[in-house]
Nucleic acid binder design. Sequence first.
DNA 1: AGACGTATCTTGACAATGTTAAGATTCGTT
DNA 2: AACGAATCTTAACATTGTCAAGATACGTCT
Lengths: 206, 206
Amino acid sequence: MAEPGSNDTYHHGNLKETLMNNCLKMIEEKGVSGFTLREVARISGVSPAAPYHHFRNKTELLTAVSVMGFGMLDEAQRKASQQFDNPGDKLRSLGRSYVMFAVNHKVYFHVMFRANREPLWENEQVINAAKQALGHLENTIRELYPESEEGNDNHFKAAVLTCWSMVHGLASLWVDGPLRATEPGKLDIEELIDIILSQSMTHKNF
Amino acid sequence: MAEPGSNDTYHHGNLKETLMNNCLKMIEEKGVSGFTLREVARISGVSPAAPYHHFRNKTELLTAVSVMGFGMLDEAQRKASQQFDNPGDKLRSLGRSYVMFAVNHKVYFHVMFRANREPLWENEQVINAAKQALGHLENTIRELYPESEEGNDNHFKAAVLTCWSMVHGLASLWVDGPLRATEPGKLDIEELIDIILSQSMTHKNF
DNA sequence: AGACGTATCTTGACAATGTTAAGATTCGTT
DNA sequence: AACGAATCTTAACATTGTCAAGATACGTCT
């Protein structure tokens, strides 16, 4: 199952990338729990031990996917904030972008924030990637709450936490299932986003 | 490893309960991914096949734990709402209770909302238990947004979704790790709760 | 009390998984 | 051309989830 461009040789060529892609594909089909290193190797046309030359273990593959996901979120947030000048508009744009990222990239979101790898948030790469992606939100809120001279940043911190919790909560409830399961009838996520944005992130507060 | 009261006989006596308890213990120590049916059986002093007489498979054990967790959340929410008469106070009490449940019962929260069992939210027991636990929040918000005659419940629904997202987001960010990982210094969850409650659930909005 | 159906537990087995060690093949550089 | 490093394979190991078949105890009915 070598790539179209590459010769079908002993060496795969770009196995690392292929493994990550097939990992995503497999999680999409069978869920995070159904994801198996051996099958990813099989699908990638390679022996069960081959992945170990690119990732220390199964967890590290997921970690790599996670870091990549945060990179994508970072990019999405960057674009979202660039679309507006007014901080309030920026903020709402960032919120919408955050939730839509989770909705449109369920698998990434799962791997980034769930994936039941407990020591995930002790990995520096992940932490840094996450900080960077979250930076856009902080920068925007900073415009609304300029740094005070006495280092009293409570209002700023409160606003950041509130906004993050808000969008992350909606994203989680949607992606994980509870919202769709407990609410009868069809739900349109874009509507829901507008609802919480207009409820909590309007000029009343910002 | 029979219970103190029971004779050490061929039959365990209350294996189902023992398995659930040891399941929680094991997840607490090794995380959801480190949880193993065989070891739970081993710890419970029983053969690897014994659990299959009480749960159809590994997933069903987790499902049972999940349902139990929602029962506990329901109870906590009930108590929290009983402490106040004023709907606004009730609402804040419910929010605090929701987050503190997640913090104090990490394992349950994980199993209830994560646990990477994808078809979890297709289980009716789980859905019903979740609906019931969520009912307290809805009832309280209903007091603030009485049912309109034209069935236009948008304000009500918006408020429910906003509150739920808010507290669920904070709980998730705390329990899963990102908040503690990205924020430098020690964090006090009780402070954080007060922050988001005063930011979003004060009389300004309710 | 005794007999019998049922619930509960054990033993033994199977395929599948994560992971490692040892060896084979190719790449890149000198 | 040669050699070390990178990449891949084969073979093996312990462990896991799960099931079938058999053993043991419990409760109930007469």
